[in-house]
């Protein structure tokens, strides 16, 4: 129990009258890789965006219930503080096109107006890029614009940008759906390494990916959390019929 980092209690999300996430209760441990899978429109991304309060930025979007981060309800905290504490990586790589690779990594500090010495920044940049397995590829072109990188490199740059803020938890919203197979495997390989220091929640519509990278898997269907179990268990002997149907490809 002490090991819990994120806990949702009767969490609900809405777009206007549309009830997208229904009464989700889930408890996620530190240094776990969690895959969240389910068919399109099942509420998995909406749930993810509820955790760092990105959901409420969409006009008409509301939520009910609690998301506890280290025991504290994020909806009682300042949203800006919550977002700074939780890293997020999006579907499409979105490095800041006006910033260099170097500036992109420390963007969380730069844009927030946090002053760091050059030496501190150098350390953060090297450490973050090393953790995101990008350092070797870009160490000689740190001051080029980040948008010159390939899609997979850009996505790893975005991961470095999230890591630089030293979050405990990083959310991934279908992080490889816009990437080619080689870039995808480079990002997936990274998940295994990041696990040592961070907790990862990865939304994916790709079952194979969920099976490959995660310790535990949550299956969402029609806004409900249908099943949440060890990934191996889930893919070999799911308890719920709907999970069974999804995994065996009876619907997608």
């Amino acid at each position: 129990m002490e090991n819990t980092i994120v806990k949702a209690e009767n969490y609900n999300s809405y777009f206007g009258d549309n009830h997208v996430v229904k009464d989700v209760n889930i408890s996620i441990n530190k240094n776990e890789v969690i895959a969240v899978m389910g068919p399109s429109g099942c509420g998995k991304t909406t749930f993810l965006r509820g955790i760092n309060r990105m959901h409420e930025l969409i006009p008409g979007a509301t939520s009910k219930g609690k998301i506890l981060l280290d025991g504290e309800n994020v909806y009682d905290m300042n949203a800006i503080y919550v977002r700074a504490k939780i890293g997020m990586v999006f579907q499409r790589p979105n490095p800041f096109p006006n910033l260099s690779i170097y500036e992109n990594v420390v963007a969380g500090y730069l844009l927030n107006g946090i002053k760091l010495s050059k030496a501190d920044k150098d350390v953060i940049v090297e450490k973050s890029l090393t953790s995101s397995a990008l350092w070797k590829e870009v160490k000689d072109s740190l001051h080029k614009k980040g948008t010159f990188l390939s899609g997979g490199q850009q996505q790893r740059l975005c991961i470095a940008r999230a890591i630089a803020m030293q979050p405990e938890l990083i959310l991934f919203d279908e992080p490889t759906s816009a990437l080619d197979p080689i870039s995808t495997s480079s990002v997936e390989a990274l998940f295994h390494e990041l696990k040592a220091n961070y907790t990862l929640i990865i939304v994916t519509h790709n079952m194979q990916q969920a099976a490959r990278v995660s310790d535990r898997t949550a299956f969402f269907y029609m806004g409900e959390l249908v099943e949440f179990d060890d990934t191996k268990q889930m893919f070999t002997a799911p308890t719920d019929q709907r999970t069974q149907n999804y995994i065996t490809g009876r619907f997608s």
């Binding site: 990105m54 503080y81 700074a84 999006f90 963007a107 969380g108 927030n112 975005c158």
Partner: peptide, 10 residues
């Protein structure tokens, strides 16, 4: 682009 910045707590 805006989401990237907002998600960093900006």
């Amino acid at each position: 682009l805006k989401e990237a910045a907002l998600s960093l707590g900006v």
